[in-house]
Computed example of a mutant assay.
Amino acid sequence: MLFRRPPTLPLEKRQPPARREATSLALRVDGSEVIVALRRDARARRYTLRVRAATRDVVLTLPARGSLKEATAFLERHTGWIAVRLAQLPVVVAFEAGATVPLRGTPHRIVHRPGMRGTVWTETDAQGEALICVAGEAAHLARRVADFLKREARRDLTEASRRHAAALGVTISRITLRDTASRWGSCSSTGALSYSWRLILAPPEVLDYLAAHEVAHRREMNHGPRFWATVDRLFPGRREAEAWLKRRGAELHRFGGGE
């Protein structure tokens, strides 16, 4: 029996393997290394730099015909600008004893109560200061605070979403909490809602607005005039809530140190 060799492409016609494009560049800024993420955009006409407060990173957008050499030169020319913007980012507040974090827009000081039973609860001290009290070992404090905030967020967002859905006469399915940097919420065509758990840090009316916004997508899966009219019926104070998010929303990402 004869065995035929599998067909092969002649050597002169073989294509070289595609080279993977770099997705980041390392840049020295004030003596420290900063990793700059690279994003290529076919619609971009020029190089564009952003320092994102939510994710505390640097992003360089390249036009379709931009080169790595040009990108590197562009970054080096704007090192000073990057240094200033990074220095202006809000200081990260870790979930630790003594730290102050907002809960429904009200500052709460984290207090460790190692000898107490339970997990996490809120109370007000004799001076009227709002507290988040955490029992158990110190090693578990940050996780317990994060879990507590996420539970509170789920409770408030579930209540608000169901209330707005009932008012609009629509149904919703599951509600998911995430820690997204680019959006505060989303709604799928099947009625699944997703929110950032960090909305529990904002004033209640801001959380309520986001719930109304996403539930309104059950009627209008767009941001056209009819959609905004629906949002305004559900939540008349949307412009004030939007203004708060535009002004203060990025600050919510500094709490928790990546929790």
Rank of each mutant, 00 (worst) to 15 (best):
L207S: 10
R4S: 13
C133P: 05
L141E: 07
L68C: 02
N222M: 13
Q15C: 08
A97I: 00
T72R: 14
L27S: 00
R5M: 14
I82E: 12
G105F: 08
E21Y: 06
R254C: 07
G105N: 05
E21D: 09
H108K: 11
S194A: 14
K246T: 12
E159Q: 14
L207W: 02
R77M: 00
A83D: 03
G249I: 01
S196D: 07
W244K: 07
V34T: 08
A211R: 06
T124H: 14
R4D: 13
H112Y: 04
V170N: 05
I132F: 07
A202S: 12
P102I: 07
V134A: 09
K13T: 14
A165T: 07
P16V: 01
L11D: 15
E214G: 07
I35R: 15
A22H: 00
T48C: 12
A241Y: 08
Q15T: 14
A153Q: 02
E205D: 14
M1Y: 10
L149R: 11
M116D: 15
I172N: 00
R20F: 01
P204R: 03
K69H: 02
D41V: 01
L60R: 02
R104K: 13
P90H: 06
P114F: 07
A135V: 03
G80H: 03
D232R: 14
Q127G: 09
T106S: 09
G237R: 12
A146P: 09
R183Y: 04
V36R: 01
V101A: 10
A26K: 11
E129I: 05
S182Q: 10
L49Q: 02
V84I: 11
H217E: 05
G128F: 06
I110N: 10
A138I: 14
Q88V: 02
E21L: 11
E220M: 04
H253N: 03
E123I: 05
A135G: 02
T180V: 14
C187L: 06
A18F: 03
T171Q: 12
R77T: 00
R239D: 15
L11S: 14
D147Y: 09
Q88S: 12
S188C: 05
R109T: 15
L131A: 05
L68H: 08
E129G: 07
E152S: 06
F235E: 03
S24F: 08
T176R: 15
R163Q: 13
V231S: 12
A216C: 03
E259C: 09
R174M: 04
R144L: 08
L9E: 15
A94T: 02
K69C: 00
P6V: 09
R219W: 06
R233Y: 00
K246R: 15
L60W: 00
R40C: 01
P114A: 11
R218S: 00
L141Q: 05
R198V: 06
L201R: 06
L25K: 01
R239I: 13
W121C: 01
M116W: 15
I175D: 03
F74I: 00
E21N: 03
